[in-house]
Design a binder for these strands. Structure first.
Length: 572
RNA sequence: CGGGGUGUGGCCCAGCUUGGUUAGGGCGCCUGGUUCGGGACCAGGAGGACGGCGGUUCAAAUCCGCCCACCCCGACCA
């Protein structure tokens, strides 16, 4: 396959449009992979090169999904409102759902996801346990009228997803399928050249079985994740845990100390000459519960150098809503509050504070603190539960190695749905005993266009994209340079080489444009083609220059061997 | 949705504070010439009426009001 640049719709840009900020967004525009259409946020056209990359990612996905028994189909983008009304999501989804009406006034939406449609399909087709299990998938456009589209393809309003749905007779079979799709995802992202971690995520309102998100570490990521470099522990910070830091056990009795004017952790630490992590701070909240109870005072006791994870506190309390208490709602002096002798407050204590050591805490008297306070000896710690926000350097709860923290782009998710949709849509089958049962479902998504952007986030440098070979739009860029006879020889040699390589199944981008060498080199770098072969002045000695995009240096090889050297890079 | 910012040829941007010839530069584009290994140079040329509407004024890209779009932060969301 040979593409001639002189004829390609490949509009590279020397400067990026000013509204593009992220590397992936800028580079996709500069390298001529895509363009925004009209004045619409989050609506893009993929140009020929962008489409090629998309197709490569999709091919990898298809191979791996087929490999775990997935069957490809295509579900409609336009979906009738009735189905969504049956599951209740027509009302729940809100503004984000792109709704439309046909000429008769019937309501539809542009599918943001396809659980309803696929479940509707299966309830008509599946009667018997003998027809299960089933794993189907599609690669299809999705529509979400985002409040705030941004970051180019990372959060567009129209995007491409591979979504898969599985149907099972029982939970064990769902779990088996879940694990095999999980494995396929690991292979898919690895093959795409993406550094990716599966993190245990919150199953949210849907609840039930586990869910993993596949996160690609990148600064542009929308979520913060912590993960272990040694074992496979990886979680969203919201759910992250860490081993408590070891602290010596206090032997001295608790004692009052005067700390006039010292209210903040930093003040108290400086005043007493202790480190912030020797001080325990207490934070007050007001909780509202599902049964209508409101205004309960709760407090969290954590080390002074740590951040409270409010989500954890909320889960620990079981509250529906939690808000920081105002000064009036707390009847101890602010800045001098502590757990000793505290009344009328439900206290939650972080394990690190509960673990033996003596802590500096507020004395609940103006201008005074206590030192060497020990949980269980000097105060009732209440409920002991992890409340701190995990951070880089904390000890992994799995193996004790230091944790790393990074932002991550969610490129995929696997989810054990259970019977939420099958029950709502009455998608049932008859089991071996002749009883009617709702199908047990799983769903599995990969953001295809988002994966493309994530790959660029991880693979670029100052000169442009550095595509992994598996997803590069072309394998090799042939760059003939030179003028006059030299130039003609270069072009002729490039044509011959292109034909040879193409015959071996290597995808060739031939820069046959009448441009100066500098322009060609800059464009080749920008496009990120894995290998560049320059045919220029060295041709006089029968040699060409071979350079990997990811490498600094080029190598001169005899023209006669250029095909072999190039083919070797791609394993042909 | 809250806060901030921006809107001037295809792209990047100046001009606006302090209204006043024909709205300007760079890149790109067209023509000719010279060049030719890291985004060349010279000469000539095409292309915008300044996001939209309304107002103030003798006069508005520039001042005022409303609206729209896009971008950023946050909230929200899988």
């Amino acid at each position: 396959m040979i593409a001639r640049m002189s004829r390609l719709l490949l509009p590279t840009l020397r400067e990026a449009p000013s509204d593009a900020d992220l590397p992936s967004h800028r580079l996709m525009l500069r390298a001529g992979l895509m363009r925004r259409v009209g004045d619409s946020a989050g609506i893009y056209a993929l140009l020929p090169l962008g489409l090629r990359v998309k197709a490569k990612i999709e091919a990898i996905i298809r191979e791996e999904m087929d490999g775990v028994g997935g069957q490809e189909l295509v579900l409609p983008i336009v979906q009738p409102a009735e189905l969504w009304q049956e599951t209740g999501r027509w009302a729940v989804y809100g503004e984000e759902m792109w709704r439309l009406k046909d000429r008769h006034g019937r309501l539809y939406c542009l599918g943001p996801t396809h659980e309803e449609v696929v479940t509707d399909l299966m309830r008509h087709e599946i009667r018997s346990w003998r027809q299960l299990p089933l794993l189907v998938y599609q690669i299809q456009n999705k529509y979400r009228d985002e409040r705030r589209p941004r970051f180019g393809l990372l959060r567009a309003r129209e995007f491409i997803m591979k979504d898969a749905y599985s149907f099972h007779t029982d939970q064990q079979d769902l779990e088996r399928c879940y694990r095999s799709v999980y494995g396929a995802y690991e292979r898919i992202f690895r093959r795409c050249g993406l550094d990716c971690r599966a993190v245990l995520a919150d199953s949210g309102a849907i609840g039930g079985s586990a869910t993993h998100e596949f996160m690609a570490p990148a600064d542009a990521g929308e979520a913060e994740i912590v993960f272990c470099g040694r074992c496979d522990y990886a979680v969203d910070v919201e759910r992250g845990e860490a081993l408590p830091r070891p602290r010596p056990v206090a032997r001295r009795p608790m004692a009052h100390v005067a700390t006039p004017g010292a209210r903040s952790i930093a003040d108290v630490a400086a005043f007493l000459g202790v480190r912030p992590e020797e001080i325990a701070k207490i934070l007050f909240y007001q909780a509202t519960y599902g049964d209508g109870r409101t205004g309960e005072s709760v407090a969290a006791l954590i080390p002074g150098d740590r951040e409270l994870n409010e989500v954890k506190l909320q889960m620990a309390t079981g509250a529906l809503e939690l808000r920081p208490a105002t000064a009036e709602e707390v009847d101890v002096p602010l800045g001098y509050a502590g757990p000793v002798g505290l009344r009328g407050v439900r206290l939650f204590t972080d394990p690190e504070v509960a673990a033996g050591a003596g802590w500096v805490v507020g004395a609940n008297e103006d201008g005074r603190h206590l030192r060497d306070a020990v949980a269980g000896r000097d105060f009732d710690p209440g409920t002991i539960i992890g409340l701190s926000t995990v951070r880089a350097g904390d000890a992994c709860p799995g193996c004790g190695a230091p944790l790393a923290a990074r932002r991550g782009i969610e490129v995929g998710q696997v989810f054990g749905l259970g019977t939420k949709y099958s029950t709502a849509l009455k998608a049932t089958f008859l089991d071996a005993q002749g009883r009617e049962q709702p199908m047990i479902m799983g769903c599995y998504g990969i953001g295809v266009t988002r994966t493309m952007a994530a790959i660029i986030e991880q693979h670029h440098d100052v000169d442009g994209i550095v595509w992994p070979a598996s997803v590069a739009p072309y394998h090799v860029a042939l760059v003939p340079v030179g003028t006059g006879d030299e130039g003609r020889r270069a072009v002729a040699a490039a044509e011959t080489l292109a034909t040879e390589l193409s015959g071996l199944g290597i995808e060739v981008l031939l820069d046959d444009r009448d441009e100066r060498p500098g322009v060609k080199f800059k464009d080749a770098d920008l496009l990120g083609i894995p290998l560049r072969v320059t045919l220029g002045r060295a041709l006089a000695e029968g040699r060409v220059e071979v350079k990997r995009r990811a490498a600094q240096d080029a190598e001169l090889v005899p023209l006669a061997e250029a095909t072999r050297v190039t083919a070797a890079v791609f394993g042909n």
